[in-house]
Amino acid sequence: MLQSLVSEKKIDCDVHVTLPTTAKLVPYLDDYWREQVTTRGIDRLELTSDISNISPALRPDWKASSDVETVRTLALEPFGTDIAICNCLYGAQAVYNADLAVALCRAMNDWLAEEFLSKDERLRGSIVLPWQHPEKAALEIERLASDRRFVQVSMIAMGDMPLGRRALWPIYAAAEAHGFAVGIHAGTTYRFAPWTNGWPSYHIEDQAAQSVGVQTQLLSLITEGVFEEYPKLKVVLIDSGVTWLPPFLWRIDKLWRGLRMEVPWLKRSPTEIVSEHVRLTLQPFDGPKDAQVIQELVAQIGEHMLLFSTDYPRWNFDGTDAVPLRGQPDLMRKLRTENPFETYARLREV
């Protein structure tokens, strides 16, 4: 079945779309929020940890992505992309006022549908979730479930609490029920210091922390039993590196063998759970330059675990024919076509 649907479509699992200013959301807000946004002067509402705001993190030739024409020209056409999953990082996911988060996220999702998904049929969306209010976040998933162009729901790696916590389970229930993948994007709302030893001095230290933040969140999802409760759930770790996965799993498997009496609901090893439920986008590829070592790393990680992504417009992508993909059409086909179709149930249903 899958084979015929898949054909040879090329999928990019992480293209960033940036809201230029909150003013763009005004048409999608009700009177109360329109007045709040206007009189309070809520303009860009950037996510502080979003490195798209830091010029050294942007490719010099990829400066803008706030309109569909630019995305088409710079992100889709050069790569022959047939389907691109758009991710929006936005400060609404960091505000403390949960009602404001709900209003802005709703408007953001409507703006994404109107300005991007409706204008190019290759584009798919990730629902920006007001995860500060899990019940309302679940309602937002219900609201958009009938729009098949949305294929994923999106959260930030580090937020109010560890991601496995039961308080967040309404989100996972709704995502599973409607076949959405749960995308966890690198980043933090700075509720907690990004490192366990506190607040670092430099942006580069913050960036180094992201892959570790994602590891501890994946561990939370595993230990709390999210994948036992929601056996069809798929989680995609976006923009968080990939080479940390094998040593992470070695250690977690070993801890599980020693400590499984603490989490007896885990009937399988963490490696088995992750292999079934979790995937990772390829960029930024946190590997060495040595092509032979990269081969070994991809084998350690597992070819089925990786999803092709450009991470447009950030300066992570190594080029269309960069290692680990050079001269390996079978691997490339897995990463760009087969694995995304396996991961995103809603891509298969269009």
Binding site: M158, T188, R191, A209, T216, S220, R251, W256, E262
Partner: peptide, 21 residues
């Protein structure tokens, strides 16, 4: 500081790993 950038975890198994980080 919290054991992880995402907050205080629930289980010793998580705390063990967080300390390693």
């Amino acid at each position: 500081h919290a054991s992880t950038g995402g907050g205080w975890p629930s289980f010793y198994m998580e705390e063990h790993y967080a300390t390693t980080m």
